[in-house]
Design a protein around this nucleic acid. Structure first.
Lengths: 221, 221
DNA sequence: GAGCCTCTCCCCCGCTCGGGGGAGGTCCGT
DNA sequence: ACGGACCTCCCCCGAGCGGGGGAGAGGCTC
């Protein structure tokens, strides 16, 4: 059965774009739209979507309140994917605190958007690395390491092999070098790397390495 | 005038390989060879090379002793580029401690080798990131950050713009994204990125980001 | 035994990246 | 006035990378 999605954004254009991108996927179905957070709860009750793609900034009720409201009032609530235009949006981490399962930039590429929806639908949390640093500053800065990044890494549930590959990535090795070191083919390494990128919500190996550092997965110094 | 290089390695094959790679460059000239560290000092005195490409492991006198000897006894000594087969070679950091200006893996690609020679000739120090971590563990672990990486970064003498680009690289941005943020063309960003990679002795942006983290240039957490 | 996960390897494809060149502009110090 | 950084942009080109598929072998649990 397909992943059902409810779109919540005050801009019709954005909704249309999301719908186009998501419906192009055979396994994703957009079951409804809302223009404001205030309309979300009844819609969620009626449509029971797997995922709510929710804008943070909306006129009547913003994405944070809406997220809280949904999670409080709906039994077996859907996954909440927060959408925002700005990666420095202070609202974002509040939404995550409120219980959102991930967030996504509007300017993300279609493949990323689709990917993000699938991930949260499967129960994985994701944050895009470019924003992870930002979050860290706000999230509370006492202990070493970055809580947000750590959360990403923990929820990523990397397999042993994937973790091993990530460690080598974080030492600057290329796929070919990793393959040589692990005594496997480069295609195999590519598979693992892809899995790592997918699970971490990273676009490329650089972002994955950033998560590795931010989360304390690899120790700097 | 070209960069003059003295090759010191006990394996003729390696010397031949280095010679072939280096002489293919119009601006690099191999002026001599030696099979052991013991032969280095007189040759350096006579040939006065800009750079000595020196193996660490050699039968009579290893690269560390040879490095120390050259730096102690020769006025205006050449730059020493240490060459090794293993990146975990404990000899390497000792050589660096002894005053070597950089090191290089034998399995490095020709372009990297050429690049390394040019860099040390110009007075830049370089360490390949994959080995930087290793060095850190040995180099002394009290203070935060990685001394070796910090040294790389300091001696890299990045321009303001380059530092800015590196910071954005370390946040996971692509060249296009950096270009958008800095309001310049992607070609410009590519230039800066190339300059950063060159100065840091990094092969790709991932390695550059690793140096950024290891050196404390960007703070994790 | 069926299902699931993990690890392994394969294909095709498009794109970004990085190397190696060059070139014009400004600003600054000598 | 000249050289020298520095920033900007341009070209060509090859290689590595990442997406999107698939597929088989082994091991696990139910």
């Amino acid at each position: 059965m397909p992943v059902t999605v409810l779109l919540v954004d005050d801009e019709p254009l954005v909704r249309a774009g999301l719908r186009a991108v998501l419906e192009a996927q055979p396994d994703i179905e957009v079951v409804g739209e809302a223009a404001d957070g205030a309309a979300v709860i009844p819609l969620v009750r009626r449509l029971r979507p797997d995922v709510v793609a929710m804008d943070v900034r909306m006129p009547l009720m913003d994405g944070i309140e809406a997220t809280r409201a949904v999670l409080r009032t709906v039994p077996e609530p859907p996954k909440i994917l927060v959408i925002t235009t700005f990666e420095n949006d202070e609202y974002v981490y509040e939404a995550l605190r409120a219980g959102a399962d991930g967030f996504l930039l509007k300017r993300a590429r279609p493949a990323e958007i689709v990917h993000a929806v699938r991930l949260v639908a499967e129960g994985e949390s994701l944050l895009f690395p470019a924003s992870v640093r930002r979050l860290a500053a706000e999230y509370g800065g006492e202990g070493g390491g970055n809580r947000a990044a750590r959360a990403v890494l923990e929820r990523a549930r990397l397999t042993e092999r994937e973790a091993e590959v990530l460690r080598l990535m974080a030492r600057g090795l290329s796929n070919a070098e990793i393959a040589a070191r692990l005594l496997v083919g480069t295609e195999t390494v590519k598979s693992h790397v892809s899995a790592v990128l997918a699970k971490l919500g990273a676009r490329d190996r650089t972002q994955a390495v950033i998560v590795a550092y931010e989360s304390g997965f690899v120790a700097p110094g």
